[in-house]
Structure formats: C-alpha cells, structure tokens
Design a protein around this nucleic acid. Structure first.
Lengths: 354, 354
DNA sequence: ATGAAAGCGCTAACAC
DNA sequence: GTGTTAGCGCTTTCAT
C-alpha cells in the first residue's frame, strides 16, 4: 500500500502540499499530461484532460508558482518601488499600475523606498533576487537614486515613472512644461499678475522640472517672478511655512504655484492664518490632483497627472520586450481641475495689488 | 576548454545567470561549500570561505531566492492585503508593517483588494501560490471576506489587522470602546451634551464596532443619542452629505463623532457651508489620526490607532509559530489627539443651543 | 498524443 | 570540514 503521503484536511490544519505527481498518480497518468492540461501548453486528448481535472479538483490541487517560475525562468511578476507610499500621489499610481498589470495577467510586487536611496537600492536587489520580470520605479532622489536604477536596468526591463534619475532608462512622466503652462494661463485668465512658486527641489525630479518650467514660462508674464521660488519638501508643513516667507519677502504676489497639493494645502492654511483672502488676494494652485486638493477649504485648483495612461505606458514598456533598448522619454499630458482657490468672481478679475 | 557558459557583461545587456555551480567551479570547490559560506548555515574553514567570496564577487554572483525558497520550503515573505491602499489609514499601516517585517529580515508582498471580496479572494490565492510564509489581512468586508480569510488561514499563519471577518483567526485591532470613550469624554469635558455619530456600517468592522460602542457609551451622557447615528461610506463626500442630514434631523446636536477622519473632514466642510461655527456650535471628532485630520481647517481632533504596536503584534503572530492555533484577539489602546475642532475656549464651554 | 527523464538554482542530508 | 547527491515543484525536450 502506498502511504508515502498523507493528506490531513482537518479543519484549519494546513494540509500536506499537493504536487503534480500526486495528481498524476491519482489520475493514473504522467506528470507531463497533468502539466499540459493545466497550462494548456500543448494539446491533450479530452478524455485525459477530464481525468486530470477531476483528480486535481478531488485532491484540491493548487499549482505552485515557485516551481513553475524556476522552471520557466520567469515569474509573471513586476516590481514597483515608490519613494513613499504615504505620500498622496503614490497610492493612486500604485493602484493604476496594479490594474494595468492585472489586465496583462501580471502581479505587482510593491516596495516602499521610504525616501532613502540606500534602502531603495536594497529594494532593487530584493526584487531582482525574486526574479521579477520587470521593474517600475519612481526614484526617490534625482541623482542619488541613479545607482539603484542602473543596477535594475542591467538585469531586467525597467521604466521610471513620475520621477526619474537617469536618461539611460525609459521615462514616463507628465510634461512639466504643460503642467505649469496650464496653471499659469489659468491664473492669468483669472487676473493674476504677480507670481511665485513653492517647490521641493533637490530630491524629486518632478519638483525640479516644474520649477524650471515655471522659471522659463513665467518670465513672459512677470519679469521678476522667475526669482520668486522657494524650495522645501513635499509636505503641508513646508507649505505652511512658505506662506509667511512669501508674504514677508514678496508682498505683491497674487498667485502662488505649488509643486504639489500637499504644499498647496499648507500654503492655503498659512495664508488664511495671516488674514489673506483666497483667491481674491492670492490665488493658489497645486499639482497631482489628489484627495488633498478637494479636501482643502477653499478647494484647491490642481493639475492632474494622467495616472492611468502613465501606468499603461510604463507597463507596456516593461512587458513588450522590443529588442530596442533605446531609452525613450514619454511625456504625457496633464489636465487642469479648476476649483475655488483660483476662481475669482468676474468683479475680482484683474484686481490690483492693495 | 570549458565553454558551457559564456558571460556577456556588456553594458546594459543582461548577463547570463550565475549560479552556485559557477562560483564553485571558479573557486575550485563544491557547491556545498559555496552555499555554506554564503548562508553561514554551517562552519567553514576561513581560507575556503575567502576563496568562495572572492569567486562570488568576481563573477558578480547574486543568490536566487526562487531556488532557495523552493529548497527551503519557505520564502521569508509575508503577504499583506489591504482593502484600499488609497484610503488614508492603510498606507500608514503598510509602512508600519514593512518596518516590522524588515526588523525580522522579512519582505512584504502587498496587494490591494480594491474593496472587492471576490478580488480579495483572488489575492489570497495568488499570495498562497507564491508561498508566503504568513499573511496579514485587513478584510474589506465584515462578512463577505470570510471565505478569503478562512482560505488563507487553512494554509498559512495569518492575522487580521484593523478589520476582521471571522473569530477563527487572530485579530489585532484598536479597542473600539476605548476609542469612543476617548472621544466622548473629551467632548463632554469641552461642554458638549448632545451627540450624534456618523459611520460607515455594513462593510468594515471598525465602523461597525465604533458605532456599537458609541451607542452603548453615549446612553449615559445623552439618552437620545444612541438613535442619532448615520451610516454611509468612508468618504469625505459622505461626511459632507451627513452634515445636512444632521442639521435637519437633529438641530440640537452639539457634538458629532465620526468613524474616520475623511468623514469628519467632509462633515466639517458641510457644517461650515451651512453657517455653523466649529467648535463653538458643533464639535467634531474623527478616527485614525491621518493626514486629513491636520489638513482640515479647523484641524480635527482625532483618535489615533497605535499603528506601530499593531504592526509589531501582527507580525509576531504570523512569524512566531507557537503551536497554539487558538485564535487570539488583541485590542490595543488608542490615543487622543485634541485639535481645534473640539477645543473650545473657556468662555465657550457649556454653551447652550441657540 | 503520451510518458520518462532532465533540469531550473538552491540547500541539506549523507558519506567521507 | 568538505564533497557528492538527492530532492523542492514545475515544465519540457526527447523518445515512443
């Protein structure tokens, strides 16, 4: 009698692992037939297939990815490294990516770099060791993340998304010039004439690019504005601080463009605390169109990234292995979501500085 | 000459996979010695170890988790399923869990159930197929998630965290009675006397438990209050709607307890829109102490969950395999974070209804 | 169309 | 202390 394996399916107690061999034995067939019917890799006589399936369901067989992956030399898994999952924009990005992956039968392996390039590099190695088939990364630092990105790129197809650290790998971003242009032209249409920018330079590439775009574009509207930039972090606290700095240093400013919604939110609070009215005296815009933009009072006008398109593009970049390793840059188009923080009533339009 | 393997380390081109055998050959040793020195599983003569390490670095060897996991029958990976990563509380929870895991040399595999019990079940199977050593889950639905939780529990150590769907598996939650008690006693100390509750019953267990705790505790303070509960979803929009409902149905209410910060945020906006002053006329509290509580104007008093402790407890539950499968329930203690939405000035205390 | 056997990369007995 | 070898669970030649 064969007692090499005992299946104890007692309630709650982990049952012994069922393998293809068990199924094969149960069905009186070879492991090859089992594998073939279950994966559909090659044709199998219907009668055999039925026997396999019956045996499989009877034994409650569940294929093991580890064995399969080892054999196939691929895992059907894509890694994603975000700078900080608690930061408002990234959960939305992660969700969009998960959806895009699922549509391709792939699974997401998500890691959080916690804004630390060293840990980010660890994440890359971890993911590579797990044999992800591709890697999506939003590098936490414009320059210090480069080693991590390159290390990844040398082993698997990768794409940088939202942020980037090198031109040597695909980049999927939202066009920063278009982003700023949307904000500026809207603010001008609302009568704003004196601009400032609150960003978070030195770490994240979008902040850097948005700042540069601001400096280029704003010169045509307000000659002094390119100098009026402030750099901090992507936090509401920084926005709150920035309010005082702006009021003290540039009292004439009537429009502030923020590098993200969190900064904008803090800034709005700071301005209100200093007795300013929004948007009548000062209008404020954010970026990324996160929950914070609508949560604010007044709600904040924000420039949204095309998250879904970005996710789809990035996923297709790491999945379709075109033999063209020429790194591409894909700048997708943002959308403006006007809200109370900039919408002046007709009477207010063109208001002069007090 | 041996040419079975050719390593092409050309720039950017994926190099051929280096295995233990390659390292062994390079060092003129056996694979066992390589494995032993690299894992430190058993003592190795220093000289040998050196040769191994040299060969490894020379060949740029990186161990492959797939092979290791298959051999060890464990993956050093813990899965986490959250109901919705975009919902404010969960990114914080995920980060705390990642930290706790890392402290134990484990890796997090994060999946998003997207508030869909069916998809949640798929996630469980996916994670099991990937042979996670344990599973942490915050079930998206109080009842409909049960199959998913049980399926997981029958194969690996699991713990439910924050939310739960069954008593048949460990539960790590924040004590709902303590949560409500903290809010109520604080509000009473601020002079509030007429209470209402805005929740999100029917899906998430904390909302359910918080509501029930509210109904029990509030009776001592305000006899009519237990009836004054409203159920919707965990969104700011719902809070906004709820404001009008409350003002219309229970105009005497001077304190509203919300099941989470997002609801509270919307409620505050709604109340302000209806011309109420906060906290003078109506005080508002939230739960979870997320970014939204501080982002609000006025900032919202919130009851924080002890996220770090929860994460550590949950992780230890799934890692330390005590042979005691008796499901435990761990209710940890919350903390109150008083803010402007409830802090009345001394003069306002005990204010009567207009 | 089916079965036997080799092997993915690793670790852990088992001998020496 | 070191080497040889047998698997972990799966897919897939290679024969038949």
């Amino acid at each position: 009698v064969d007692v090499t394996k005992r299946v104890k399916a007692t309630n709650g107690v982990p049952a012994a692992k069922i393998t293809v061999r068990d199924v094969a034995r149960e069905a009186g067939l070879s492991v090859a037939s089992v594998s073939r019917t279950l994966t559909g890799a090659r044709p199998v006589r219907p009668e055999i297939a039925d026997r396999v399936r019956q045996a499989a369901t009877k034994l409650n067989y569940e294929p093991d990815y580890l064995g399969r992956s080892l054999s196939l030399r691929k895992t059907a898994t894509i890694g994603l490294i975000v700078p900080d999952i608690a930061s408002p924009f990234f959960p939305a990005l992660a969700q969009a990516i998960e959806s895009a992956l699922r549509a391709n039968g792939l699974t997401l392996l998500l890691m959080d770099a916690q804004n630390d390039p060293a840990w980010e590099l660890d994440c890359v190695h971890e993911l590579l060791a797990r044999r992800v088939d591709g890697l999506l990364i939003s590098p936490c630092h414009r320059t210090k993340s480069r080693p991590a990105v390159l290390a990844a790129a040398s082993r698997v197809p990768i794409a940088q998304i939202d942020r980037y650290a090198t031109a040597a790998a695909h980049r999927v971003t939202t066009d920063p010039a278009a982003t700023i242009h949307l904000a500026v032209s809207h603010l001008v249409s609302q009568g704003c004439r004196s601009f400032a920018f609150v960003g978070a330079m030195g770490s994240a590439s979008p902040a850097f690019d948005r700042k540069r775009s601001y400096q280029r574009l704003i010169a045509k509207v307000d000659a002094n504005a390119p100098r009026r930039t402030l750099d901090g972090t992507f936090t509401a606290d920084w926005g709150f601080e920035a309010a005082e700095l702006i009021l003290r240093r540039w009292p004439t400013v009537d429009a502030v463009i923020c590098a993200n919604d969190l900064i904008a939110l803090g800034l709005v609070q700071g301005l209100l605390d200093h007795g300013r009215t929004i948007p009548a005296q000062i209008a404020v815009t954010g970026c990324d169109d996160t929950y914070f933009a609508t949560a604010s009072r007044p709600a904040i006008t924000s420039v949204a990234q095309p998250v879904k398109e970005m996710a789809e593009r990035a996923v297709s970049l790491v999945t379709t292995d075109d033999s063209t390793p020429a790194p591409g840059v894909f700048q997708l188009s943002p959308t403006l979501h006007p809200r109370a923080s900039t919408q002046r009533t007709p009477d207010d339009t063109g208001i002069a500085i007090p």
